[in-house]
């Protein structure tokens, strides 16, 4: 018999008063994969992951974690899950070693606390008070507390939010190392680079529903364009959008805050054609940028909004 799917969600719903936080969400996490929930603020990521963690009861829908259900196998599940919440402040007066030791004591089976502390590279800080740790060190402490029970499935809610690039890369390496051990991960993030780097598959969540799902590559490929081209013309000048769309090799143009955005499959062919069309319309270029298409572009294309509120 194959191992039970780490996580199956069917038609999950949860509302808080008038606010619908999760609105009929389906999800499957496969064994050994790192799955990412990607979405803007308020998309329902935390609500979803806390339902999976058995901390919030859904209004309706089915939740199956490691082949077990909340309400029936709670004790067992708690032993098998590693959890890092979006915001937990550990007691500032305890040391790193004491904190991880405390969490270790809750699990019947688990890893040695000192080993986990070394694993998250806090060995030097083992005797330091939690109150003296930096933001990145605190996130690694949270990861250590999630790992110390030697979990089958790891839930990480925004593990790197608010960290500097170096600390983020350090955490990514730790998460990758855990996944290399064959365990599964569900993480949430609103950094598309994080999802692209860490996740085997991602679900893009907006307003409590999954609006796209697949590997980062598949999702980007679904745009039908490898590149995104953004430009702005001098103040007050108007462009003929239909004529722009008619340029060969260019997708439907969209305009936001004075910046035009085009999806382009072959940059070396589309660029001269675009410049020719702009010259024909007599427009003066004020700005021109291109980048390879990312998950962010997938989100913008699907919703017409930016993933991260600027």
């Amino acid at each position: 018999m194959p191992a039970a799917a780490p996580l199956v969600l069917r038609q999950l719903r949860k509302s808080y008063g008038d606010v619908i936080a999760v609105d009929g969400l389906d999800l499957d996490v496969r064994p050994g994969e790192c799955f990412g929930l990607l979405g803007p603020n308020g998309a329902g990521k935390t609500t979803t992951i806390e339902i999976c963690e058995g901390l919030t009861a859904p209004d309706s829908g089915e939740v199956e974690v490691l082949g077990r259900r909340w309400g029936r196998h709670d004790r067992e599940l708690r032993e098998l899950l590693g959890i890092s919440l979006q915001e937990t402040q550990f007691s500032e007066k305890l040391t790193v070693g004491e904190t991880v030791g405390l969490f270790r004591s809750f699990y019947a089976r688990g890893s040695d606390a000192d080993r986990v502390i070394d694993l998250v590279q806090l060995g030097e800080k083992a005797r330091a008070r939690v109150g003296q740790l930096s933001g990145g060190q605190r996130q690694r402490l949270a990861l250590a507390c999630a790992l110390v029970g030697d979990p089958e499935l790891l839930f990480l809610d925004e593990p790197t939010t608010g960290l500097d690039p170096q600390s983020r890369r350090q955490l990514w390496e730790l998460i990758e190392r855990f996944r290399a051990g064959g365990r599964s991960i569900l993480l949430t993030t609103h950094y598309m680079d994080e999802a692209e780097r860490l996740c085997d598959r991602v679900a893009i969540v907006d307003h409590g529903r999954v609006i796209a799902e697949g590997t980062p590559r598949e999702l980007i490929a679904s745009l039908g364009a490898e590149h995104v081209l953004e430009f702005a013309v001098a103040d007050g000048e108007r462009l003929d959008a239909d004529a722009l769309a008619a340029v060969p090799g260019i997708g439907q143009p969209s305009r936001r805050d004075g910046t035009w955005r085009l999806q382009v499959a072959e940059l070396h062919q589309a660029m001269p054609a675009l410049l020719g069309e702009l010259r024909r319309q007599g427009a003066q270029l004020a700005e021109l940028r291109t980048h390879s298409a990312t998950l962010e572009d997938v989100f913008v294309t699907l919703t017409g909004r930016q993933l991260r509120g600027e």
Binding site: I83, L85, Q89
Partner: peptide, 16 residues
């Protein structure tokens, strides 16, 4: 204080 810091929630997420 533990409730305010979400530490209580984190603790009940373990087998404690």
């Amino acid at each position: 204080d533990a409730r305010r810091k979400h530490l209580l929630k984190r603790l009940v997420a373990t087998p404690m």
